[in-house]
């Protein structure tokens, strides 16, 4: 069983990811921390609590985190997901649980120090909480063996030409995490864009299953598909978080990925802010480079850009109807 801490900016896609995680018997969610992202932090917290209620399995503690990117104002995604982040998704009106008093940054540090290398971190939003935890307690955070994240672009962004939305939201925080040294698994915009195409058959699978609560799985799926139809240019934002969870739980879904030394651009023009610069060169593959004294950083990242979308659809619908 994998022990996981999930850091999340919960809107409709993250509701789906959280319900999946809480329904997966091979996973135990130790804690959930929230952060601003597609929605403000307060709404992310509320949606997280509602997701736990909707999942109806167990109740990990929820800790609220940072409300603003490190150096600029938040750009939310209310254009796509609405002010409450849920689109037309109906979850319970009243969560059966309240958030904890402890700040998310401290909760991350506490949970990592408790479980160490037995814990995996899954990040479904901007990396602001994690960056601050790394800055505050680097020795504790270095015990993590891996961080899986929704975000980054292998070749092409969805927020600007080169940046993916979550990274673009707080590029400085993201680069603190990328530069830290704990290996990353980046589930990119490209990987999730391809999954936005799955649909009708998976929907049928959901309809034929035993829904819990009644119709909730279908509602989740319908909501994401409808959002995709309304916002074809934002398709990559819809299934990215469910996919990142799926990749953590079922790495065999990965069809294509590459190792790289990845860093995040925080300087320069708006055209490149938040670009995940994936340096795949090695001395062996790129002997022609001009500056032979230039050192290429050790690979820190697995960049996942293609997954088995049909198998992902089955996995997703299987967990939602459980």
């Amino acid at each position: 069983m994998k022990r996981v801490l999930i850091d999340t900016a919960t809107a409709a896609p993250e509701v789906v990811a959280l319900v999946m995680a809480l329904s997966e018997p091979d996973i135990h969610v130790e804690a959930i921390t929230t952060v601003m992202g597609k929605v403000p932090a307060g709404i992310a917290t509320r949606n997280t609590l509602l997701s736990i209620t909707a999942a109806g399995t167990y109740q990990p503690p929820v800790f609220e985190g940072i409300a603003k990117p490190m150096f600029h104002e938040q750009h939310d995604a209310s254009l796509i997901f609405g002010a409450d982040g849920l689109g037309s998704l109906s979850v319970a009106q009243h969560p059966a649980q309240t958030k904890e008093v402890l700040h998310a940054v401290d909760a991350i540090i506490k949970t990592v120090s408790e479980w160490g290398e037995a814990l995996e971190l899954l990040c479904l939003g901007p990396l602001t909480n994690v960056a601050l935890a790394i800055t505050k307690a680097p020795q504790v955070m270095r015990r993590l063996k891996r961080i899986t994240l929704t975000g980054g672009a292998a070749f092409e962004g969805d927020a600007n030409p080169m940046a993916e939305f979550n990274i673009w939201q707080d590029a400085e925080a993201a680069d603190i995490v990328f530069n830290f040294g704990v290996p990353l698994v980046m589930v990119t915009a490209e990987a999730s864009d391809a999954c936005a195409g799955l649909s009708k058959q998976d929907l049928d699978n959901l309809a034929s299953g035993q829904n819990r609560p009644s119709g909730f799985g279908q509602d989740c799926f319908n909501t994401l598909l409808q959002l995709g139809e309304k916002n074809p240019d934002a398709r990559s934002l819809l299934f990215s978080s469910p996919l990142a969870f799926a990749v953590l739980a079922r790495p065999e879904l990965i069809q294509d990925s590459f190792a790289s030394y990845s860093r995040v651009e925080t300087q320069g023009s708006a055209q490149v802010y938040g670009a995940t610069v994936n340096d795949r060169r090695t001395d062996e593959t790129h002997p022609f480079r001009a500056n032979a004294s230039e050192t290429i950083g050790a690979f820190n990242c697995q960049v996942v850009h293609r997954v088995d979308s049909a198998a992902f659809g089955q996995y997703l619908s299987g967990l939602l109807v459980k």
């Binding site: 080169m162 651009e265 925080t266 300087q267 320069g268 023009s269 490149v272 610069v277």
Partner: peptide, 10 residues
């Protein structure tokens, strides 16, 4: 791109 730590010349 003219600026950038990693992306100048992109």
């Amino acid at each position: 791109e003219r600026g950038g730590t990693f992306t100048r010349g992109t």
